[in-house]
């Protein structure tokens, strides 16, 4: 990538939590600002010249006409478009209420950093890879990999609604390591087997509704695609 990549950071309908993660990278922020040419970041400064971009980070789901306009405009100006946060990647909570759609429903998304909010380490690694001229690596594993490496006992096996096997890894199994079942906030893994998960949970005595509510909370789109077949 050229010496100083031109970067833009945008928010659609969202809580701005993912943009906040970047602002909170206190120790690294100066290094990043030296390495990139930050063109547009409404959250951090007021003077935002809009133009050609090398990389655009976009947060939030598309819930209204103005979101779609912004998204299309950003896409047309950006070489690489990266969805940040589970709302941008999967539609997140807005999708569940039938009000929001993920970016990939509307434009080409080159890379996704899921999470609610995103993990700082994954964001920094992604920025570093981009600076080197690579697309960041996608994390191939579900939460269970990190959970098992941390030698946690399995909460799903113990009869809790743990979304770990259905959920993209990268959080270092934050919740299961605190003995809390995974809520699936990082969105669907590469290969979520909702049908089996549902059968396991129904065997543990949960109702179809309880299971759906939990499994579809953050990645309803994936749940509908993979999970609606009769198991």
């Amino acid at each position: 990538m050229k010496a100083k990549p031109r970067i833009g950071i945008y928010g659609l309908t969202s809580c701005a939590g993912d943009q906040l993660v970047l602002v909170n990278c206190e120790d690294e922020l100066l290094t990043i600002l030296e390495a990139v040419d930050l063109r547009s970041f409404v959250m951090a400064h007021s003077d935002n010249p809009e133009g050609e971009l090398d990389v655009a980070f976009v947060e939030g789901a598309v819930t209204q006409e103005s979101d779609l306009e912004t998204l299309k405009d950003v896409r047309s100006r950006a070489q690489i478009l990266i969805a940040i946060g589970t709302c941008a990647v999967w539609g997140g909570i807005p999708y569940l209420s039938g009000m929001g759609t993920p970016l990939s429903d509307h434009v080409q998304v080159d890379y996704a950093i899921p999470g609610c909010p995103i993990e700082k380490t994954q964001l920094l690694k992604a920025i570093a890879s981009l600076l080197r001229g690579d697309l960041p690596l996608s994390l191939p594993h579900p939460v269970c990999l990190e959970c098992t490496i941390r030698e946690n006992n399995c909460l799903l096996q113990a009869g809790e609604i743990c979304c770990g096997p259905l959920t993209a890894g990268g959080c270092n199994a934050r919740c299961p390591s605190l003995n809390r079942a995974c809520f699936g906030c990082r969105g669907a893994s590469h290969d979520p087997n909702y049908v089996s998960a549902r059968q396991i949970l129904e065997k543990h005595g949960f109702s179809v509704n309880e299971v759906r509510q939990r499994l579809a909370l953050f990645s309803g789109k994936a749940y509908e695609k993979e999970g609606t077949q009769v198991g």
Partner: peptide, 11 residues
């Protein structure tokens, strides 16, 4: 059909 592809068996 039952496999969650969680990888716990490998780890």
């Amino acid at each position: 059909k039952d496999c969650l592809a969680c990888g716990r068996c490998s780890m």
